[in-house]
Write a protein that binds this DNA or RNA. Structure first.
Length: 884
DNA sequence: CCGGTCACG
DNA sequence: ACGTACGTGACCGGC
């Protein structure tokens, strides 16, 4: 056996691929509107099996048409099947083209199905004695072909997950030999192929009979041995059907094929044709793979020319006068503490690289980086700025930040990896960090290796190569101003805030922690007594058992994995059993302890007693920031116990104040402005309480009548709902009113605020036409699901279309305010410390307090001119807690 | 590594 | 009929 023959059932794999990607179908269309999901899935399968099996010979067999010897034998064979969707049938010619471009033969034969071609060739191969055979299909019936020389791989969930059937595996799984599969099918028939077997015989009976008799022939010869009178009657009655089903299920292994084993030689990818094909299909990831594989052969990665920097050649860097690409490599994610492990710098064909970060301090290097005249192109300006700042180098004149530009062009699929982003924009001669360094536990960076140096040169080079194109794309999106006036500027403002950090008093946290610890222990004991046993309260699974099985509390909601024990459920159950309230209390305090006491203590820097968060500037889909290590945007405030955590956040100097200013209802003001709704604008212009006004309007109260707190609360919920892209169900869930009521409220709302209604309709239409929506500052979010056939995906996209311009414009506004703020306070001792979406937090010396009380709100409310005023409220105190 | 839960706007 | 509020991050338990 010197050869390995791979036989692929083209139709069934195409079907599987199509339905595996069914819900994502609309994400897979090429520029000319062709659906490509099945082509894509098919190719993924090809990649996997070619790689796993390393075959010498390959064939993809297809069905030739609807009419086959089976339909001639039984007219209804495969009858009643839904017509193949056009979204799939249009892809078949391209799948065949793909297969050919990959150097693989295809074949189809009138009157026969792909199964028969495969069966026939497998038999020929087995008989010749030269071959090992592997069959890949989505149809489990083909497992009848397994033998000691042939294995059958059946696709499971997707198309790349395959289950391998050997004769042994068939017996274990199905309880019969491979050859007996057709005997089973003879008896039970096949619903999907629409032919009957014997009445009342299904899987179990068929299996039992075949295990007893071996074959249908033998069964009928010994029909008197069948136990069960009815069963015997059915068998006798339906003998013809059983024999016909047996024939239909049997793969023809003697089909009159006009192709021979010698024609199946696997030639491998035709790179040129395949490149062209992938480009037409818009398959960027496959293009990337193609070029990486290609590079592996040509050793392109190591062929790049670069000079290793040494003390003696540093002066060569003086050649860069106008522009340079620079990449600073770090070994860890957290750039506040990560070691620097190398850098690459250069332009065009001149590249320099080193694994000695101390060379950064050499004047030839630092002069370049701090120069106001030499433009820098890089990836992640904030990270680079902080890394260099730690070496006392102040990075200046960043022109192109590839990470930021990529994020603005398309927030989805953005990545922190240079290689990944480069691939996304059509530049493939670079590997990803994962490919070079490994991932998870296996990740390891060998900074001494030539591969390392080559890799970071490739990063710098990718940045250099892509910056013109990406700037052009930015311009086409009308996003150059967004980039230059907002995003690149805020990167440095954020860097400064992160470096500055905020002081957290460890003593305060520890004192609170020991109190919490006692409370937790107390509540824990009480819960154990109430439960009558000890268990892990933190485990929803164990807790569910206690509450819903042992104590028999009513099950109000379930999750995918079991009983739901979330707050809303437990709150409803609390009156039924005291243990429930205790669990709620336990949860709350355990959360405070683990996330906020222990969690924060872990990240206080020893040298300065501060925490230095990192704002992720290129993560959210709306343009907001997020905050990690630690997250300082979700410090408790809603409950008094949690709010106490804020007492630990203190100014750096004794006697200073923590000063906080927040935009009041910024999202609703943005809504009023961009919808142009006159009624809502009037409310804000008149300085009214918007929730009360909304309540008056939708509940039809006279203007002199006071709005009850309950009605105001409901109106507030509706206002929120509108911002989120409302549905009556969502509103009813969130407020406890009925769905019908919710529906009425929404209708009333749209009557009172017709501009809002029109905007919501228009923005969804816009999204359908353009497949994206944008904010005031032209921040863009693509909504690939907006025309999806799936109700769920489409509805989600519609809500997103309504919400993103509002949430995103609010994000634009506070970013502008922060940039202006940075200027406004640059000569003061006051420092901007944190941003929490609609609020800014500062530390302020007492002698500047009177100044900032006016200055900070005025900078914030003048960030942008809307059709309604922006309102800012300020609070201050000796800790963050006291700034209320 | 994922799902449940809960902290924030 | 479908089964839903928008945007995040950290921790825990359990696979």
């Amino acid at each position: 056996m010197t050869k390995k023959l791979l036989l692929i059932d083209g139709n069934s794999i195409a079907f599987k691929a199509f339905y595996a990607l069914y819900t994502a179908m609309d994400k897979f269309t090429n520029p000319s509107g062709l659906h490509t999901s099945a082509i894509y899935g098919f190719n993924r399968m090809l990649d996997k099996v070619l790689d796993d099996e390393q075959p010498t010979d390959v064939l993809v067999a297809f069905d030739a048409g609807k009419v086959t010897f089976r339909t001639k034998m039984f007219a209804d064979y495969k009858g009643g099947r839904a017509k193949t969707p056009t979204e799939l049938s249009e892809q078949f010619p391209f799948i065949k083209e793909l297969v050919n471009d990959r150097g693989i033969a295809t074949y189809e034969l009138p009157d026969y199905e792909a199964d028969d071609i495969i069966g026939t060739l497998a038999k020929q191969a087995e008989d010749s004695g030269d071959y090992e055979v592997v069959i890949v299909t989505g149809d489990r019936d083909l497992t009848q072909l397994t033998s000691d020389k042939t294995t059958v791989q059946v696709s499971k969930k997707g198309v790349t997950e395959l289950e391998t059937y050997t004769p042994k595996h068939v017996e274990e799984k199905l309880g019969v030999k491979p050859s007996q599969i057709i005997e089973i099918k003879g008896l039970k028939g096949d619903n999907s192929d629409n032919y009957p077997g014997v009445e009342k015989v299904g899987d179990k009976t068929a299996l039992k009979l075949i295990q007893q008799f071996g074959t249908i022939d033998n069964l009928y010869q010994n029909i008197d041995d069948v136990s069960g009178k009815k069963l015997k009657e059915h068998l006798i009655q339906d003998e013809d059907q059983a024999r016909r089903a047996h024939k239909l299920a049997t793969i023809n292994r003697e089909a009159p094929i006009t192709i021979s084993l010698a024609d199946l030689n696997y030639k491998g990818d035709d790179i040129d044709k395949l490149t062209d094909f992938y480009e037409r299909m818009g398959f960027k990831s496959f293009l990337a793979k193609l070029s990486v594989d290609d590079n592996d052969h040509s050793e392109d990665q190591s062929k790049i020319e670069y000079t290793v920097l040494t003390k003696d050649n540093l002066s060569e860097l003086d050649q860069f006068k106008d522009e340079v690409s620079f990449h600073l490599e770090m070994s860890e994610e957290n750039y506040h503490i990560s070691p620097l492990i190398g850098f690459a710098v250069g332009q065009g064909d001149h590249w320099y690289v080193t694994n000695q970060p101390e060379l950064l301090k050499d004047p030839h290097v630092s002069r370049l980086l701090t120069s106001e005249t030499v433009k820098k192109n890089l990836f992640d300006a904030k990270r680079t700025f902080v890394g260099l700042y730690r070496q006392s180098i102040i990075l200046k004149n960043v022109d192109f930040d590839m990470l930021l530009v990529s994020y603005l062009l398309n927030t989805t699929n953005n990545s922190n990896d240079v290689g990944t982003v480069a691939h996304l924009h059509g530049f493939y001669n670079i590997k990803t960090d994962e490919e070079v360094y490994g991932k998870g536990a296996k990740r390891q960076i060998d900074a001494q290796s030539p591969e390392f140096l080559a890799h970071i040169v490739h990063k710098a080079k990718a940045i250099d190569q892509l910056h013109d194109d990406m700037f052009k794309d930015l311009d086409e999106h009308n996003q150059t101003t967004l980039y230059r006036d907002i995003e690149i500027k805020i990167a440095f403002v954020l860097a400064k805030m992160e470096i500055n950090g905020i002081k957290v008093d460890a003593g305060t946290l520890e004192a609170m922690g020991s109190k919490f610890k006692e409370r937790i222990a107390e509540i824990q004991q009480t819960i154990y007594q109430e439960a009558g046993e000890e268990f892990n309260i933190g485990s929803p699974k164990q807790l569910g058992k206690i509450l819903f099985e042992k104590l028999r509390l009513p099950i109000l909601k379930k999750t995918k994995t079991g009983y739901s024990t979330s707050v809303d459920v437990l709150e409803k159950l609390a009156p039924d059993a005291p243990i429930v309230q205790n669990v709620l209390d336990y949860r709350q305090i355990a959360k405070l302890q683990s996330t906020y006491i222990d969690g924060l203590l872990k990240v206080i820097h020893k040298d300065d007693g501060k925490v230095h968060t990192r704002y992720l500037q290129t993560l959210t889909q709306t343009g907001r920031l997020s905050s990690v290590d630690p997250n300082l945007q979700n410090i408790p405030i809603r409950t008094e116990e949690g709010r106490l955590i804020r007492q630990a956040f203190v100014p750096t100097q004794p006697g200073w104040q923590i000063f906080s200013s927040d935009y009041s209802q910024i999202e609703l003001r943005v809504l009023a402005s961009i919808t142009g709704d006159q009624n809502m604008q009037e409310a804000f212009k008149e300085g009214e309480d918007i929730h009360a006004t909304t309540a008056r309007r939708i509940f039809g109260l006279p203007s002199n009548e006071a709005v009850t707190p309950e009605l105001r609360r409901q109106a507030k919920a509706v206002n929120f709902g509108i911002v989120y892209g409302i549905s009556d169900f969502g509103l009813s869930q969130n407020t406890g009113i009925t769905r019908k009521q919710a529906h009425q409220f929404i209708e009333r709302y749209f009557e009172e605020y017709p501009g809002v209604k029109k905007y919501m309709d228009d923005i969804v239409k816009f999204a359908r036409n353009h497949r994206y929506v944008e904010t005031i500052a032209h921040r863009r979010r693509y909504l690939p699901d907006i025309n999806s056939k799936s109700f769920n995906l489409r509805s989600f996209a519609e809500r997103t279309a309504m919400n993103t311009p509002i949430q995103g414009s609010a994000a634009d506004i506070i970013k502008i305010a922060m940039i202006n703020m940075n200027e406004a306070i640059k000569d003061m001792k006051t420092k901007m410390l944190l941003q929490v979406h609609d609020e800014l937090i500062f530390e302020v010396p007492n002698d500047e307090l009177e100044t900032v009380k006016k200055l900070i709100p005025s900078v914030m409310d003048s960030a942008i001119k809307l059709d309604v005023p922006l309102k800012v409220e300020s609070h201050w105190g000796k800790t963050w807690y006291d700034a209320k």
